[in-house]
């Protein structure tokens, strides 16, 4: 392991299954110390990328390196200092939670046996450790999966939607754990489709859609990109619309229909000076102002824009992945 090699370095990763392109050319670099969010809707190829990083499946094209090591060439040695799981963690149902961890620790070596008790404590599974995994709930298996990862004392943690199936307290604990591990120097790559989770934990994010990265950068730039719009309600929307269209510096003027939670309104984008001029013009045309409010776009909105808007992407391949994402989001 070269000391300066990035924890994750992937170039041109492609994975095709028959006619489905699950991953369509992904470049990904995770630097030491990052908590990196890999964000995308169902079927975007998040799990598939993690499987390739972990050496579980072979890329159709491209290469993946963990700390400079290729899982295809170096086998288990490429996973030294790396831990994590994809999808739901799975264990032997006929063994107890503890026996499962003992088995995995035996496959790990490096003193992992000695960390079992501590790992079980961290995920609060100590009192169920002697029950068979076959009787565990989904959330309990998720916790055991995290414990299994901790046994390896990872420098790089790969987590696939780690909060799935956890109750609110479990989710909170999971996020606290990720934050703590990160503060202790662990690099984390976590996939998610929950923007709030990524927003809370991650410093960098890639947004994927249909197997491609459509945004990559730090969260601050993503927030700046979010932008926003204005919302306007008046006593005479038809006249107001005419004034709006005539006003310089305002764009994306639209009429929004009523929704159950908000009355219909006009929306537009523009800077504050243009909005100030608009308010004067409206009053001059005898239109009464009921509401004129700035609406900040949330990161969730950016996520939806990036992952749903077909025009955003140069030439989306007609893959099943894209169809899946579209169908669910529609």
């Amino acid at each position: 392991m070269s000391a300066d090699a990035a924890p994750v370095h992937a170039r041109g990763l492609v994975k095709r299954y028959d006619d489905v392109t699950a991953v369509a050319g992904v470049d990904l670099t995770v630097q030491a110390g990052d908590v990196y969010g890999y964000l995308g809707p169902n079927g975007a190829g998040k799990t598939t990328v993690l499987r390739m990083l972990l050496g579980l499946i072979r890329p159709t094209a491209g290469e993946a390196r963990l700390f400079g090591r290729d899982p295809l060439v170096d086998g288990a040695r490429a996973l030294e200092g790396v831990a994590g799981f994809v999808e739901e963690p799975r264990f032997y149902p006929y063994l107890t939670g503890r026996k499962n961890l003992e088995l995995l620790a035996a496959l790990d070596g490096h003193g992992a046996q000695g960390r079992i008790g501590e790992a079980l404590d961290i995920v609060e599974m100590t009192d169920r450790q002697n029950h068979k995994v076959g009787g565990y709930s989904h959330g309990m298996r998720q916790r055991l999966g995290v414990a299994a990862a901790l046994l390896r004392k990872p420098k790089l943690l790969l987590l696939d939607e780690p909060a799935t199936g956890l109750d609110p307290a479990g989710m909170r604990d999971m996020r606290a754990l990720v934050a703590r591990l990160s503060s202790e120097g662990t690099t984390v790559l976590l996939s998610s489709h929950l923007m709030p989770e990524v927003e809370e934990l991650c410093n960098r994010v890639a947004i994927v859609r249909a197997g491609r990265i459509v945004y990559e950068g730090d969260l601050i730039s993503l927030r700046a990109r979010a932008g926003g719009h204005w919302r306007l309600r008046t006593t005479g929307d038809d006249e107001a619309l005419r004034v709006l269209r005539a006003q310089r510096g305002l764009t994306a003027v639209e009429r929004e229909a009523d929704t159950p939670s908000a009355a219909g309104a006009l929306r537009f984008e523009g800077d504050e000076a243009a909005v100030a001029a608009l308010s004067v013009a409206l009053v001059e045309s005898g239109v009464g102002l009921l509401e004129l409010t700035p609406v900040r776009a949330t990161l969730e909105d950016v996520f939806f824009t990036l992952t749903e808007d077909a025009a955003e992407e140069p030439a989306p391949p007609p893959t099943t992945a894209a169809d899946d994402a579209g169908a669910l989001a529609a």
Partner: peptide, 16 residues
């Protein structure tokens, strides 16, 4: 069947 291949193949032991 148990889905455990991924569990044991992501430790420090080679497939062989």
């Amino acid at each position: 069947h148990n889905g455990t291949l991924k569990t044991i193949l992501t430790r420090s032991t080679d497939r062989s």
